[in-house]
Design a protein around this nucleic acid. Structure first.
Lengths: 154, 154
DNA sequence: AGAGAGTACGGAAATTATTTGGTTTGGCCG
DNA sequence: CGGCCAAACCAAATAATTTCCGTACTCTCT
């Protein structure tokens, strides 16, 4: 396990908020030379702290106005239902996240679709079409109180 | 409503996967001059399709190995419980997402902590300490099947 | 046809990233 | 203690990229 110091954390924190910041400005904000910052960042990437960079898109602008969470329960009769479900979920573009959870149900799915009509289609043609899906409970999001907050690195 | 064409979508798609790609390379991949791509990107940012850029960090590397979802039910006796809960959630660094949902409970909270010990502390000192919280149900994630997939822009 | 908007392009200038080489610091061991 | 090594830092030079500007093309509307 490689440990990181306060400066590294600051770099990660700033980069999480603004992934496209210029190296020189990053260096200025931290109080180190651009060269050092560049070396540190390279190391942070090599050691797997930074997995990549991405643009944050506005889902509403893209016509994806409805966010839903779906609790999925599987039939545990066949041995490979979990595998098959996991694989199918990867290919569904509507599914943004899918987690296997401990508790009352098996999988929690987070998906984005245009509207309720689109959701009904997604539910019927994608989720319920999968073999082994016994039951689902849908929760439509009415208000996104906090959306994709940065990880606490400080 | 401003609509975007196929080239714009391609820009967004690439940028979602690699937010730090050089403009020249982006232009090459799409088959347009860097200048044009720059202009399009500027427009996409101005019109709110791109809200920003961020580094994708590895939560496990940062000691945040446990992902939990918490269903929260509130006491609807006081009129401002929702507001107060929403405000409190913003300041909690463990909370990555919080959504008000329609259905069996009021809020769905997604949080990242180090381990179960840290979660117990978070639950007791942050969530349950809030006035108006009547009941919570916790679901610990055992396996992250799909994590933060890009929005379907194609 | 002509005006205006929108989009595209190439080249020059400004900015930024990366590499190179050298200095300092701190630990380790003969 | 003195020498040695590795890590972190920096300034300067070079390489690459972004931005700015002038121009051309195509649509559409009058």
């Amino acid at each position: 396990m490689i440990d990181i110091d306060k400066i590294d954390r600051k770099i990660l924190s700033i980069l999480q908020a603004d992934g496209r910041i210029a190296n020189v400005e990053l260096a200025e904000r931290i109080g180190l030379s651009p060269t050092s910052i560049g070396e540190r960042l390279k190391r942070l990437q090599r050691d797997g702290f930074v997995e990549g960079y991405g643009a944050r898109l506005n889902p509403h602008r893209l016509g994806l106005g409805l966010l839903v969470f779906v609790e999925v329960m599987l039939d545990k009769t066949t041995p490979d239902v979990f595998e098959r479900f996991a694989r199918a979920v990867q290919t569904a573009p509507e599914v943004l996240e899918c987690h296997m959870v401990a508790g009352g149900f098996d999988y929690l799915v987070k998906a984005r679709v245009a509207d309720m009509t689109a959701y009904r289609r997604f539910l019927g043609e994608s989720l319920l079409a999968l073999p082994g899906v016994r039951e689902t409970r849908t929760y439509a999001v009415m208000e996104e109180v906090k959306r994709d907050a940065p990880l606490p690195v400080g």
